[in-house]
Amino acid sequence: MSPGRPELVAPLAVEGLFAGYGGGDILKDVSLSVPAGKVFTVVGPNGSGKSTLIKTLAGLVAARQGRIALCGRDITRLAAARRVSAGLAYVPQEHNVFRNLTVGENLKLSTEFLDGGRLAGPEQRERVLALFPDVAERRGLLAGNLSGGQRQMLAFACALMANPEVLLLDEPSAGLSPKFVQEIFQAVLTVRDAGVTVFMIEQNVAAALPFSDIALVLVAGQVRLVTAADRLLAEHDLHSLYLGEA
């Protein structure tokens, strides 16, 4: 059961996952496996359950059936804050920084109250800040006064402070101007190259795919297709995939 050689155990693996909000299941039998050191992107039409999937992974929505494993360890029943300690960091789509606190305080709070051994030491802090020089320069500023792109970077930085194995990003480009969109995806690559596996959701398929390694198409709560990101648009018709004609 020990992780042993991490390259062989997927950092994040999901088997037969069912989840929903009180009514029927939104996710129906989702299975996937995210290979180490890759950017894994989930796309799909509105309301297909993408956010539900990432919330279930983060521990904000309870799984009804199935199993979620982080580096081989079963985390299906772990509370959200404990999953962070276990190495799974989550950046929500919005409201993802404390706006009335300074950038420095945001960074500090990202690990201060986590129990478990993930407290960020100074070296982790330096490593993270080196990835995001824009954020590092503005430690005294209120997070609410950052630009949209910088705020998103700060949210990434906060998530990375816990030194996660896997970073979950819910629509990182949502609401950003085109200029920032490129910047944000560049930051995603930077994170990946720093050795963190990235699992993200994107609406903006055209912008996200060039920065992704693997793409998963989720339709009506079910996995339709998993493929190399650069082959998705070349070999498949997204429109008919979304409409359910295979």
Partner: peptide, 21 residues
């Protein structure tokens, strides 16, 4: 730390909970 936790809860309770506060 308590002060930061208080301000964090005041600012964004959901995120504060996700951060283990």
């Amino acid at each position: 730390p308590l002060g930061r936790a208080m301000r964090a809860v005041a600012d964004n309770p959901a995120l504060a909970a996700a951060r283990g506060i």
